[in-house]
């Protein structure tokens, strides 16, 4: 499991979550995104195309990051959720808190 950060030419940061986003690795994701925010990035896409599962701590870290990014005038979008993960966001009503697109390309295009 790991996180990959790439930046497109307009400065949008895409973070890929490979494997899982859970209690054991959420701080790692949080730190990477906060470092990029500190360095001036304001637009973020988290790509879950290669993600197997997310636990409630993982959901929590997304809520917290989204808030921090908004406070800096930025925006965090989520993309690539499979049907199960999409359902998890709907059940917890977190789909109302995030802008969610099917693919990272759609999220990038919407910025």
């Amino acid at each position: 499991m790991s996180f990959s950060l790439t930046k497109d030419k307009r400065g949008v940061v895409v973070v890929g979550v490979d494997g899982q986003l859970i209690v054991g690795n959420r701080q790692d994701l949080k730190q990477k995104v906060l470092d990029a925010l500190e360095a001036g990035a304001r637009k973020f896409v988290i790509d879950f195309t290669k993600t197997g599962y997310i636990d409630s701590s993982g959901l929590g870290v997304l809520v917290s990051l989204s808030k921090k990014i908004r406070e800096q005038g930025g925006d965090l979008r989520l993309a690539g959720l499979n049907e199960d993960l999409q359902t998890l966001f709907e059940l917890t009503k977190l789909d109302t808190l995030f802008s969610i697109t099917k693919t990272p390309a759609e999220a990038l295009a919407a910025f």
Binding site: V61, S64, T92
Partner: peptide
């Protein structure tokens, strides 16, 4: 219930709800 408006933006408190679902 973590879905209540006042709790939705909290970082924690979803574990048991997620488990049950």
């Amino acid at each position: 219930d973590p879905r209540l408006p006042g709790r939705l933006e909290r970082e924690d408190g979803r574990g048991l709800f997620v488990l049950r679902s």
